[in-house]
Each structure stands twice: as structure tokens, then as C-alpha cells.
Design a binder for these strands. Structure first.
Lengths: 285, 285
DNA sequence: CAACATTACGTAATTTAATAACGTATTATT
DNA sequence: AATAATACGTTATTAAATTACGTAATGTTG
């Protein structure tokens, strides 16, 4: 049921297309939004090809024809804003920068959703289920992610802690052993301290799960790497969306964990949830 | 530029429609996904009306005609999961629960994006710009959000701290004064301790900004409330997406802050960014 | 409640859009 | 260089959508 973003598909296919097809592709990618509003005739004119070429192009991408293609393209555009310029600039107002930031976050989530390896997720859930103890490590922004992870995973009735102090991390890593999972979160995957610490844990026979960027030193040395490829923000104004993606991946892992534990585990979760009731003012309605 | 979900619009308009129009509406709402794939003729047949009636129906909803309507409807279906069951259940596999969790997060972000008040955001940015000092307060999950906020806002060269310890919060609130902004984050907006603390700060003349649920006690007592209405998760398996939304809103505020400070401020941000370089292994390429 | 006006909606006609069929040109293959 | 295969445009055909128009139903006013 899950579509991969049509724009990505077209972009990927670009080198394999022949002349007129790539003309069509470029015309669409130049302004996908307007493509959804134009007729086959106007798009053909814009791409400087014949109408049947556009039609053939559409069929090549597993659509019934041009109208069907337009609908699929329109769907891709909702979550996917990759080709629309959504960078915040100095002239932006609240009305314009607010949706831009939401959209770029949404877009990154959609990209990762469609690209993340389910096998790796499964493997990580396996490791977490077997773990005798879990440590979540992160510095800076990733420290906040690690903290959130602790808050989520301690509910699973096993020893979980988070750390954002490199000395504590180092000591804990040095006492690591088989059965321990060191869940290391780092956007860049290049922070020296973090990699050192992960290596210590790994050398002690502990499992190191890395939530980080592909092809980074941390990913390379870890036992399992959850690789998240979120475009680096070169833009001064733009927020770092990788931490959001990391949080959602931790949600996915927690869900996988809960499902693996089976329905007998649900009452335990409910107990924890209910424990907070007395700390709150109840709703009157 | 931002559309409200077509399905909601149609549902809302249902009582105002006349006989054949409501037939069309019902036919579409019964299976919106298939409506995007059918021709005007087949939809007319399904709704037991004439083709022009379908066409008139489309035009009533601010679309150029049937094809345009289908595209807008298709877009609505992507972000809108209202009619698609996206709840995780015990039979889900990695392949199915992973996109579900991403999608529900994306959906909540889209809902807030389209409903959040830009005026309130502007007001909050005003307050943050004027602030002599900012405190981010949160407990549990919101503690992680507060921590992330500190990490973001300290870059702005003003005294910022985050706290997740109620005693510390209480003491700080009691020393609060005009010029201080207490940025209080709480998903429920009903945590007694947090509300107490916010009241202390408020009574001392400090500004209390609440990031919380509408119509909650915290929202009611705050100076400004950033109200985020994310459906409560009754589902045992489902993650809490409100914290993600909160993080994105903080991104929006930070962006608003940066823009308000103007371009002269950018070198300062670059300096902080560069300060981390020596802690990392550099890329070889 | 009749006469008129207005709105609702279908039939038929027209226009527009999309696709299929076919043929020529270009490029690859031996 | 000859042949095959692919690429792509022109023309023809079909399908889809829209407009124009007329009748029926409903509402309004004297």
C-alpha cells in the first residue's frame, strides 16, 4: 500500500530515460505542482515533445495514464516538498516560515519512512528484547533524544538509563559486558568522544546500536547501525530535523518492543500510565 | 496556499447540500480513495445522479472541475488519515507498523501546521526577544523537549536554562520577575506541580508562556498559550506525538527569533557551530 | 392558492483531453 | 552495411468532461 514518492522515483530513473522521456521528466521536476494542474497538451508543449510521449512517460512509471499520473504526483507533493524551495530566508514572515519548517520536517520524515530498513529495525528490536540492560547515550541535541528514549523504555520493566556526561559514559562503557546494549545516538556519527566510548563498550563484548548517519565512523564501528540519511542543513535558519526523525525511530522501536512482548505485557504499561493520574487535575467533562 | 482537508470540508458542508449534491457527497465519503480513481461517469452512476450534477458539486467546492477535484481529494487523502485506519494492532509486522507510526506523526504535524495561530507565534517571539532570561520547564517527556529547547536557545546569547526538577523550578519561579520568561511545556496542561509553579512565576510579574493543550488549566492561567491540539492516544501501542509537535514549534520559534534578530546575528550562530568542529572526525572527501 | 420566480437537475450537444494505431526516423547490433 | 529494434511524431479515434438548454420541482408573493 505504501507508495514511494513519485518525485524520487523519477529522479532516480532520470539517467535511464531516453531523450524525450527525460525532457518530460525535467519539465515535471522543474515545477511538479504546476504539472498536476496542466493538461497533457500543455505539458507536452512545455517539455517540447509530443503528447503521446508524455503518455508513454506516464505509463513507464506504473500509472494507468496521464490523469492517473497526475493524481499520484499530487499525492507525492503533499508530503514531499523536496523539489519545492522551502528554505527560510530573511524575507519570510510568520505565515511563510511556519509552514516551511513544518513541511521540511514532514518531508524528512516521509523520506526516512520510505527508505529505512525494516530488517535493521527488526534486528535492533531483537537486541533490545534480549538486553539485560540498556544505556542511551547522546550529547547536545542527541542528549535530549536519549533522555526521551529513557523515558519511553523504562516502562518496559528493565534497567534503562540515559547519559549525556562523557565521563559517566566512559565509566559505564568500561564496565560493559555481553547482555548490555549501548544505544548511541549521534547525528553526525563523528564525535570523537562518543566513538571512543562506543569502542570501549564494544571491546568489552557489549552490543553497540548506533542511531546515526550512514557511512559515518560511528556507523562503521557499531554492532548494528540504524542509518538515517537526513540532508545536512547548510542553511543558517533551518532547524535540525534529524533529532525529530530519531525520536520517531525510537517510537518505532518501542512499538516493535511492545508487540514482541505480546498482549500479556499491556497491563504493565497501563499501570504506569495510571500512576500519573493523581498528579493531574482531572477533566470535569 | 494551505488547503484545509477536502474531506472535512465536504463533511462540514453536508447539511447545506441539496438532494443530488448530498448523494454525490455520500458516494465520495463512502470511499474517497476509489473516487480519486473513477471517471465522472462512474461516480455519477454510483451516486445515482447525472454527470453534470457531479460537475456542479465539484465547482461548489472551489475546484475547476472534476479532474481538479480528484487531485485535491487525492491530496487530502495523503495527509488525512481520518478515514484510513492507521492504528497499530497486535497483528502488525515491522513492514506495517513502521509506516503507521511515521504517518501518524506526519499527520499530526500537518494538522497543527494548518491550525496553529501565527499571531500567537508572533507574540511569543516578541516576548522571547524582549526576555532578559528564559527558563524552559518540563517534566517527563516534556523534560526532554525543554532540554532540547535550551540547547537551541542558548545559542541566542542570552541566559537560558532548562529544568526538570520541581524543587528547582519552584525556587526559580519564586525569584521570577518582569523580564523573565518561563516557558512551560506540558502535554496535558494538568500537572498540578507545574501549574503551581507557573502561578508562582506569574504572581511575581514574570511572563508565563505555555506550550500545551487548549482548554487546559495551564493554558488558562498562562500569559500566552501556544495551544496544540493533538488527539490523545488511547491506543496502547501508539506513541505520543505531541512532544514531536512541541519540538517543531520550538524550531519555529527559534527561526522567528533568528529572523527578528536580523542578519547581523548570523556570524554569532556560525561561531557556535564552528566551535564543535575540533570534537569531530572530519569527512575525508 | 394561483401566478410567478427561483432553484435543482437531467438530456443532449459540444468541446476538450487522452489514448491508440501507425509509420518514419534514429540508433543499436551483427 | 544490412537488419533489427527502439524512439518518437502525426493522424485518427475514443473517452471524458463541460456547456447549453429545457423541464420539473420547490419556494414566494399577492
Amino acid at each position: 500500500m505504501h507508495y514511494q514518492n513519485l518525485i524520487n522515483i523519477i529522479t532516480d530513473a532520470l539517467p535511464t530515460l531516453n531523450k524525450s522521456e527525460s525532457k518530460v521528466a525535467k519539465a515535471i521536476l522543474a515545477d511538479p505542482e504546476s504539472a498536476t494542474r496542466s493538461s497533457i497538451a500543455s505539458l507536452a508543449k512545455k517539455a517540447e515533445v509530443s503528447e503521446p510521449s508524455v503518455n508513454r512517460f506516464c505509463k513507464r512509471f506504473d500509472t494507468a495514464g496521464f490523469p492517473d499520473f497526475k493524481i499520484k504526483l499530487a499525492k507525492s507533493l503533499v508530503a514531499g516538498v523536496r523539489f519545492v524551495n522551502r528554505n527560510v530566508d530573511a524575507n519570510d514572515t510568520v505565515e511563510s516560515y511556519t509552514p516551511k519548517i513544518f513541511d521540511s520536517t514532514i518531508n524528512d520524515l516521509a523520506l526516512v519512512r520510505d527508505s529505512i530498513s525494516h530488517d535493521v529495525i527488526n534486528d535492533v528490536v531483537d537486541q533490545l528484547i534480549q538486553a539485560k540492560r540498556i544505556y542511551f547515550f547522546g550529547l547536545g541535541t542527541s542528549g535530549a533524544v536519549a533522555r526521551d528514549a529513557e523515558n519511553k523504555f523504562f516502562r518496559f520493566n528493565l534497567p534503562v538509563s540515559f547519559h549525556d556526561d562523557v565521563l559517566m559514559m566512559r565509566m559505564l562503557a568500561s564496565t560493559g559486558a555481553a547482555g548490555d546494549v549501548f544505544f548511541v545516538i549521534s547525528h553526525t556519527g563523528r564525535t570523537k568522544e562518543i566513538i571512543d566510548i562506543a569502542k570501549i563498550a564494544s571491546n568489552n563484548g557489549a552490543m553497540v546500536v548506533a542511531l546515526t548517519t550512514p557511512a559515518s565512523p560511528l556507523a562503521a564501528m557499531s554492532s548494528i547501525a540504524l542509518e538515517v540519511d537526513v540532508p545536512e542543513n547548510t542553511d543558517e535558519y533551518m532547524a535540525m530535523t534529524s533529532r525529530i526523525v530519531h525520536l520517531v525511530i525510537l517510537d518505532v522501536l518501542a512499538t516493535g518492543f511492545t508487540l514482541r512482548r505480546g498482549p500479556d505485557f499491556l497491563p504493565h504499561l497501563a499501570k504506569i500510565k495510571n500512576s500519573l493520574k493523581p498528579t493531574r487535575y482531572q477533566k470535569d467533562s
